[in-house]
Every structure is written in C-alpha cells, then in structure tokens.
Design a protein around this nucleic acid. Structure first.
Lengths: 139, 139
DNA sequence: GTATATGTCGACTAAACTGATCGGGATTCA
DNA sequence: TGAATCCCGATCAGTTTAGTCGACATATAC
C-alpha cells in the first residue's frame, strides 16, 4: 500500500498539472484544495523539487509549478520518489536492485521470478501514465 | 516492498510445497533450511495455519504441512495474509476495499483509476501462480 | 529600505509498525 | 514419565510515519 506521503504527492501533482503550465501555485492553496496538512506538504514538495519534478520561487508571489510538461512526468517517478522502488523485493527491482541476503541462487529463485513479473507489470502501467493523462479529468 | 514476514512466509511455503504432500516438517527444519529466525517463523506459520493454508500436529513427531494441494495455494493468498491487500490504495482494493477519506468522487478520481489497474495486474499474476508452479524448481 | 509574503530547513514528537526474542504452557508420542 | 513439538502472551528495541514548530532566507511591493 502506498504511504500517505505518496498519496499527498500524487494529489498535489495532479493539481499542478491541471493548471496552466508555469503558473505558480501556493503551498497553502494546494494544501487547502487537496486536503493535505500544510507543513507536511511542504516537506513533500521540497523533496519533489530536489528530484527535479518541480520548480519553485520564493518570496512574495512565489509558489510551485511543474518543472516539465505534465506529459513528461509519470506516476512511476512520483511513486518512486515518495515511496521507493515499485518492486515487491529489492532483488527484483531495476532502479534499486539489491541482492537478497539469504538467497543463494537468484537465477532459480521462483519467488524472485514471480515478483519480477509483478514489478514489470506495475512499471508498465506507472511509467506510462503521465500527469497529462489525468489533467483533463481532475478539474 | 514486501515485509520480511511475507518473504519468510513465501520461503517456508515453497519449502513445504517441495516435499511430499501431507508429510510433516518441523518448524526448526524450515527455519534452518530457509534461514528464518525460528521463533519469528513460528508466529508466521501459526498465522498461515489460522487462515487455513497449513495443518499442524503438536507433540512428538509433530510439524507442519500444507492444508491443500500446492496447486490450490496461490502467492496472492500468502501475500494478502502476511502483508495485507495487493492494491496500492484501499479504495482500489477488491478484498479490502475502504473508501478514501478525502476523495469526493471516486468515479472520476484518476489516481484511483491508475492504482486499480496496478492492483489488477498484480492480482492477475499473484492469484494465478501457485506453490505447485514453484515446487519443481525449488529443490 | 522596510514590510510582508513566501519557500526553506532543521529539530522535534507521538504513535504505530516491524522484526524479533523470551519463557513457559499445552499436547502428543514412546 | 519425559522428551519433543507446536502454541501463545508479553515484551522490546529500532525504524518509519505522519505531522508540528519555529526560525531563517529571499523576493516583491511600496
């Protein structure tokens, strides 16, 4: 299950995708419209910014906007940033591979094989769906 | 990502599936061969038993065995017992549906729609793969 | 320059969860 | 009886999660 963090991130991003590209939106506005605790949202947006998904401007009339066109930001990216790898097992992850501690033979591990399939099918969806695919329906 | 619990459960179950049907196996043996902390494994097996996946016998010459043919026990069942619903969001779950707190219109929620697809594709795999599919390769 | 709005950031907290251990109880068999 | 074995409640340390607080940096408007 996705963390609250991830859910909030997705909500915020779909809201930004629904507006005009480049238009700055206040953290407070996102928090209000998407029902996200304000201060918590700040942390999440900051993180998304550091990972290159958002731009921000400080000071008066500041705010956040998408760093790229909505069509170039996928659900997969957002989820990986806020929740970590998609794969159910680290040894089945592409973006965050790590060898199992106790598994001798990765090649023949049927658990890994199955989980790799799960990962692949999740990635096939999440890495294809972009914020643009949701923008029209979200407002 | 799957919890350690789930990983241990899957390892234990594949081991039981690899043996003769109905043959009793000691917790201690599973713990040893699958490198799972013994006491922790007891809890997990007990849980799987309560949910109808395992049979056990107490006392001398006791042990655990699968409660059904390996072909009738799926990865999906095991994961749901040890890790909860497959869906990334409760509102996208079939077996553990719960309405989103803050989502007004489920019908048009694009986040939900995407996550429902992810759930469906994961379930399509995990509910189809059974322990029998792994048994031959696991020994 | 000053005031003010706004993002930035580190520290902090309470609660829940995770992974695991301990000690003993109940049951079965020989 | 006694050894083997599953059953079970209590406990625990560490991590994660969700969220708050307060101060600071920066930009704009005046």
């Amino acid at each position: 299950m996705l963390s609250q963090r991830s859910k909030y991130a997705l909500r915020a991003m779909t809201m930004l995708a629904a507006g005009k590209p480049g238009e700055l939106v206040l953290v407070a506005d996102i928090a209000k419209h998407r029902k996200v605790p304000r201060k918590f949202l700040e942390l999440i947006l900051l993180d998304l910014k550091k990972r290159g998904l958002l731009h921000s401007k400080r000071g008066k009339n500041g705010g956040y906007c998408l760093a790229r066109p909505a069509s170039k930001i996928t659900f997969g990216e957002i989820v990986r940033i806020t929740d970590g790898p998609l794969a159910p097992l680290a040894c089945a992850s592409l973006t965050a591979y790590r060898k199992c501690d106790d598994c001798e033979d990765e090649k023949t591990c049927s658990i890994r094989r199955v989980m790799r399939n799960v990962r692949d099918s999740a990635a096939a969806i999440l890495d294809k769906v972009s914020l643009a695919d949701t923008a029209s329906k979200t407002r």
